[in-house]
Computed example of a mutant assay.
Amino acid sequence: MSKIKDYLKVAPALNYFLRVFKKDKDGKFPTSTNLKLMHGINRISIVMFGICILVLIYRYFIRGY
């Protein structure tokens, strides 16, 4: 049962989302061009996913699909 609880922890994922959208002022995380580009692409993906969820909710409640 504890293995299942370990798989269902969402704190690491939420920490990643917060880290992607914040600037690294302390220099805790490594910086390279590839890492910066990866985080930039992830930001775009997260924003697009949020917009798609909003569109789906709009269609479900407002348009009745």
Rank of each mutant, 00 (worst) to 15 (best):
S2Y: 02
K3A: 12
K5T: 11
D6R: 08
D6P: 00
D6Q: 10
Y7T: 05
Y7N: 12
Y7C: 14
L8G: 15
L8V: 13
L8T: 14
K9Y: 07
K9V: 08
K9R: 07
K9C: 11
V10Q: 12
V10F: 13
A11Q: 06
A11D: 12
A13R: 05
A13F: 07
A13E: 08
N15G: 04
Y16D: 04
Y16F: 07
Y16T: 08
L18Y: 06
R19M: 01
R19V: 00
R19D: 00
R19T: 00
F21L: 01
F21G: 00
F21T: 00
F21W: 02
K22F: 06
K22M: 05
K22G: 04
K23W: 02
K23C: 00
D24L: 03
D24W: 02
K25V: 05
K25S: 09
K25E: 11
D26W: 09
D26A: 14
D26Q: 12
K28V: 00
F29N: 06
F29S: 04
F29W: 12
P30D: 04
T31Y: 09
S32C: 09
S32H: 13
T33H: 04
T33W: 11
N34I: 06
N34W: 09
N34S: 06
L35Q: 08
L35A: 10
L35Y: 03
L35R: 05
K36G: 05
K36T: 08
K36P: 04
L37Y: 06
M38I: 12
M38R: 13
M38G: 09
M38F: 14
H39C: 14
G40M: 09
I41F: 13
N42G: 12
N42H: 13
N42Y: 13
R43M: 11
R43W: 05
R43P: 05
S45D: 15
I46G: 10
V47P: 14
V47T: 15
V47E: 15
V47F: 15
M48T: 14
M48G: 12
M48K: 11
I51R: 03
I51K: 02
C52P: 09
I53P: 06
I53D: 04
I53S: 05
L54H: 01
V55D: 02
V55H: 06
V55E: 06
V55Q: 03
L56F: 06
L56M: 09
L56W: 05
L56N: 10
I57F: 03
I57M: 07
I57G: 03
Y58W: 02
R59A: 09
R59L: 11
R59P: 03
Y60W: 13
Y60L: 08
Y60Q: 11
Y60H: 14
F61I: 13
F61P: 14
F61T: 12
F61Q: 11
F61K: 13
R63S: 15
G64Q: 02
G64W: 02
G64D: 00
Y65K: 09
Y65A: 04
Y65T: 02
Y65W: 10
